[in-house]
Amino acid sequence: MNFFTVLERIFQQSGFAAITWQQAVMMVVSFVLMYLAIKKQFEPLLLLPIAFGIFLANLPLANMGAEEGGVISMLYQGIKGDLFPCLIFMGVGAMTDFAPLIANPVSLLLGASAQLGVYCAFLLALATGLFTPGQAAAIGIIGGADGPTSIYLANNLAPDLVAPIAVAAYSYMALIPLIQPPIMRVLTTKKERAIKMGQLRKVSKVEKIIFPIFVVLFCSLLLPDVAPLLGMLMLGNLFRESGVVERLSDVAQNALCNIVTIFLGLSVGATANGELFLRTQTLAIIAMGLLAFGFSTAGGVLFGKLLCHLTHGKINPLIGSAGVSAVPMAARVSQVEGRKYNPTNFLLMHAMGPNVAGVIGTAMAAGYFLTVFKV
């Protein structure tokens, strides 16, 4: 056997010879997502592990996909069993201050109105004829801008679509600073964007402790399927607000949340196998996900305009865009846009009300879909 024959055999057994065009395309997609995460810092904590998971899953002959055995396949069981989304919700709850929502209950309405995109995308997905009602529901929840909820619902109603739904949800969440501002400007006037809102009242510790317990009780009695998500969210919040379990609150906010974020992102990305991902269904999901984000933003802003009119200019409609549950990025976008038109404006805390209400609203929408479509 001569030297060139050996080289030829090595090449034929290498990934270079086995790579497909689908794998090559998905690698390029992973590089773009890595660029957005590292250079543009768009939701890097999740986008970077997702991007690298996509990269690993499409290495030819490496068997690094979520369903191909090995370490990542073991991690993926945390998604299949709904463990990772629920643990992420515990961490989010431990990091969330519900005081702005408690101080201004009308924020619940703004959070609810920003779920418009969920139902618009659901109806659109059904109208295409490409998806079952359960799959359409899983696609619609992308409009809530809540990654863990999107994964949770997709895993229960459309397990074969977890990858495109998760990638679309987290990618668009990362792009909120680009997606939302043009819609906000089109739907509001300069005068409305410059409205300065008064200071929120101080919320007592008793209110902060009662709130998570009441929310879980009421929402779980209304829609039992939402209990796993909301229960873990409010448990984390109770750790924070009780003041007696600082160590548990710290672990939930930091170590646990960071570890689960790595596992969740990596295993979600590893589901994006090129041969399965690059299909007509996937392209439709990505397109409808963008429309869902747009409609959700518009729903929140338009309801904010209505409240602005009813309160004679006391509510800045920009905070309605924060009703999507991308915490706290959507609230920051409202703050940034408001400051452009009134440098003395401080909308962040006002926008956090609809923002955290959106988390509850999206979870409730998921619970509704589960109740209706889960077999």
Rank of each mutant, 00 (worst) to 15 (best):
F4Q: 12
T5Q: 14
Q12K: 13
F16S: 03
F16K: 09
A18D: 04
I19C: 12
W21I: 13
W21V: 15
Q22I: 08
Q23Y: 10
Q23N: 03
V25G: 02
M27F: 12
M27P: 09
V29W: 10
V32Q: 06
Y35L: 07
L36F: 13
E43Q: 15
L45W: 15
L48E: 04
F55R: 01
A57I: 13
G65Q: 03
S73P: 08
Q77R: 12
G78F: 00
G78S: 05
I79V: 11
I79G: 01
I79T: 08
D82V: 13
L83Y: 11
F84P: 11
L87A: 12
M90F: 03
G91W: 09
M95K: 09
F98M: 10
A103E: 00
A103I: 01
N104T: 07
P105I: 00
P105N: 02
S107F: 02
G111D: 01
G117K: 03
V118F: 06
L126T: 07
T128D: 06
F131A: 07
T132D: 10
A145F: 01
G147H: 08
T149E: 11
S150C: 04
I151R: 04
I151S: 11
N155Q: 14
L157Y: 08
P159F: 12
D160L: 14
P164V: 02
V167M: 09
A168V: 09
A168R: 05
Y172I: 03
A174H: 01
I176M: 15
P177Y: 12
L178T: 09
M184H: 07
M184T: 08
K190R: 13
K190N: 15
K191W: 04
E192A: 06
E192W: 00
R193I: 03
R193V: 01
R193W: 07
R193L: 02
A194R: 09
I195D: 08
K205M: 12
E207W: 05
P212E: 02
F214G: 09
F214N: 05
F218A: 15
P224F: 13
V226P: 05
P228D: 11
G236H: 03
S242K: 06
S242W: 11
V245I: 14
E246L: 06
V251S: 10
C257A: 14
N258S: 11
T261R: 04
I262T: 07
I262F: 13
T271H: 11
E275V: 14
F277K: 06
Q281Y: 10
I286R: 03
A292C: 09
S296C: 05
S296V: 05
A298H: 00
G300L: 00
G300V: 00
G304N: 04
T311Y: 08
T311P: 12
G313I: 09
I315P: 03
P317H: 04
I319V: 15
S325W: 02
M329N: 05
A330V: 04
A330S: 12
R332E: 10
E337S: 00
G338F: 09
K340M: 10
K340T: 13
M352H: 02
M352F: 00
P354Y: 00
M364C: 15
T371N: 07
V372P: 11
F373M: 11
